[in-house]
């Protein structure tokens, strides 16, 4: 019972690490490059989820600070730092995946396939 309580207490963190491992597994085991990029995006989201859940405080609200509450703001608002970091991270993650997709398009144009097994074989045969 105690163990179950601990799992429920840490539900966001557990989801985050599970998502991270799932994304890593997809990235290593999928054969098509596009699916690898999807796995990479899942890993990204997992890290964001872990960061954001660390900044949450039970019963507190989003940090839109009102004037009369500013002096005791710590008792009312959640931690703004993880949110700010993740906000910039999301936008960078989309540019990383756009760059990888552009590379995949170039690879397809050159080799006519986006399957990693065939690509390894083609590269080996060419020298």
């Amino acid at each position: 019972m105690d163990r179950l309580y601990a799992v429920l207490e840490h539900r966001y963190e557990i989801t985050a690490v599970t998502l991270f491992v799932i994304g890593l597994m997809h990235m290593m085991q999928q054969r098509q490059l596009v699916r690898k990029v999807i796995g990479f995006n899942i890993m990204d989201s997992a890290i964001f989820l872990l960061l954001t859940s660390r900044g949450f405080v039970v019963g507190h609200v989003a940090p839109m600070v009102e004037d009369e509450l500013a002096r005791q703001a710590v008792q009312y608002y959640v931690n703004p730092i993880p949110t700010g970091l993740v906000l910039t991270g999301i936008v960078v993650s989309v540019s990383v995946s756009a760059y990888s997709l552009a590379l995949i398009q170039k690879i397809y144009r050159e080799y006519g396939t986006s399957d990693i097994k065939e690509l390894v074989h083609l590269v080996k045969r060419e020298g």
């Binding site: 507190h60 609200v61 959640v78």
Partner: peptide, 8 residues
């Protein structure tokens, strides 16, 4: 939204 981060 549940984690109180509407910007995100």
């Amino acid at each position: 939204l549940i984690l109180e981060a509407p910007d995100l």
